[in-house]
């Protein structure tokens, strides 16, 4: 087993500036130069500092990509987390005082061992792994994120699902007092997501408790979130309080909001457009031009067999 020695210099500190420069060069040169060159030398604002707590004993997990991770500052300031506002800059501000301790996770439904866990007990039996995954949002942007978490399959086995457990439903905390976005009916709260059991048991699927070696920032779905890298970002439900095993597929929050636009599967698929925009390409955060979107977000080798006999135009 390869044990990674924690490094004093975080990778993002090395990456940051380079990505920063290429990304903003164009805008600075074209839009900015005329007006502002005379006024001020180009300043590179430092990224926000790490806010989480260092997670101990994290080992390197499989399936990592060699692509450069998106800078920490971007991962933690550009978030779709409607519970904390619909603008991407809002969650980092609005979730600042979100309380993630104490936190319980309820496991129920078609399992032999339903229980209510304290988060610590939920995590404790497992070794944390770091996995660098691509994240592709349905809005055609993407990131590369070094998650820290546990393969969901390892956790699910502990609950002993019954033969009737065909689907897994996940639920986000409902607490309008803490989550101002829930005071308005933008979505039908609470936020619900789901996976087929074989998707949930797939070795790529994980529950994340951290990123960049530290506990999850609140805006990224602290303290516990789902990561399914071959599906669109909204499947990766945040701040999970309940996991329920079902015989029938759950109806997710986005399926309720727009049944013609968001299906149960939501697999990344450049061939099947969102009704309102193309999914053929995406903008990697930090890059200037869009790049081609890969089938199953580049994880086709691992997951294509799960959908072998399905019409992906119909089951989008």
């Amino acid at each position: 087993m390869l044990i990674k020695k924690p490094s004093d210099i975080r990778p993002s500190e090395i990456l940051d500036q380079k990505i920063y420069l290429t990304r903003r060069e164009f805008i600075r040169n074209t839009v900015g130069a005329t007006v502002a060159a005379a006024l001020m030398p180009p300043l590179l604002a430092p990224h926000s500092v790490y806010a989480g707590t260092k997670l101990p004993g994290v080992r390197k997990g499989p399936f990592g990509t060699s692509e450069e991770p998106t800078p920490y500052g971007d991962v933690t300031s550009y978030n779709n987390f409607y519970e904390f506002g619909t603008e991407k800059e809002q969650p980092v501000i609005m979730a600042k005082n979100f309380r993630t301790k104490p936190w319980t996770v309820t496991v129920e439904g078609e399992v032999n061992k339903p229980a209510v866990y304290q988060l610590e007990d939920f995590i404790k039996p497992h070794t944390l792994e770091e996995r660098i995954y691509r994240l592709r949002c349905v809005e055609a942007w993407s990131m590369v994120i070094p998650w820290v978490g546990i393969p969901l399959a390892d956790i699910i086995k502990r609950f002993e699902p019954t033969s009737k457990a065909k689907y897994v439903e996940f639920t986000t905390l409902h607490d309008p007092a803490q989550m101002p976005g829930q005071r308005r009916a933008i979505l039908k709260w609470t936020y619900v997501e789901g996976l087929r059991i074989d998707e949930a048991m797939h070795p790529l699927t994980m529950l994340a408790v951290g990123l960049y070696g530290e506990t999850l920032p609140n805006q990224n779905g602290a303290p516990l979130r789902l990561v399914v890298p071959w599906k669109y970002g909204f499947k990766n439900i945040k701040s999970i309080v309940k996991i329920r095993f079902l015989e029938k597929p759950p109806v997710t929050a986005w399926m309720t909001a727009g049944p013609a636009e968001y299906g149960f599967y939501a697999n990344v698929n450049p061939e099947v457009d969102h009704p309102r925009w193309s999914q053929a390409r995406e903008r990697r955060i930090g890059e200037f031009f869009k790049r081609k979107t890969l089938m199953f977000n580049g994880y086709a080798e691992q997951v294509a067999h799960l959908y072998a006999h399905m019409d992906l135009n119909k089951y989008f």
Partner: peptide
């Protein structure tokens, strides 16, 4: 336009400046 230029220069356009 000036504010846009100013924000571009000072990196106030966020993680996805093109958007």
């Amino acid at each position: 336009l000036a504010l846009l230029a100013w924000d571009a220069l000072n990196n106030h356009l966020g993680a996805n400046p093109i958007e």
